[in-house]
Amino acid sequence: MITKKDVEHIGWLARIKLSDEEKEEFTTQLNSILDYFAKLDEIDPNVAPTHHVSGVVNVFRDDAVKESLDQKDVLQNAPKKEEGFFKGPRIV
């Protein structure tokens, strides 16, 4: 069972601000979905996990200089930029 306080904490971890109504609604919905996920408690398979079906482990390439996107193209979608850089919110 997760509580409204848990939902608030998950929202903090996920960087999504939740309104009070959302916290209520998600608490109910997340609990019903997690109840369903509890189906997996029925089994405890002694097998290796499958992260990827392809079986590919490491794919290497030569460390060669290649053409990349133009700085102008890369910055074209940035809502805030300054002197050729993306401008993020203040960190400290």
Partner: peptide, 24 residues
């Protein structure tokens, strides 16, 4: 997170609040 593309707040707040409000 609104840094490289997409929605952004008009006026930024601290980074956690900014990202959390954009995503909300």
């Amino acid at each position: 997170d609104g840094v490289r593309y997409g929605l952004r707040l008009k006026k930024d707040k601290d980074w956690h609040t900014t990202f959390s409000e954009i995503r909300a």
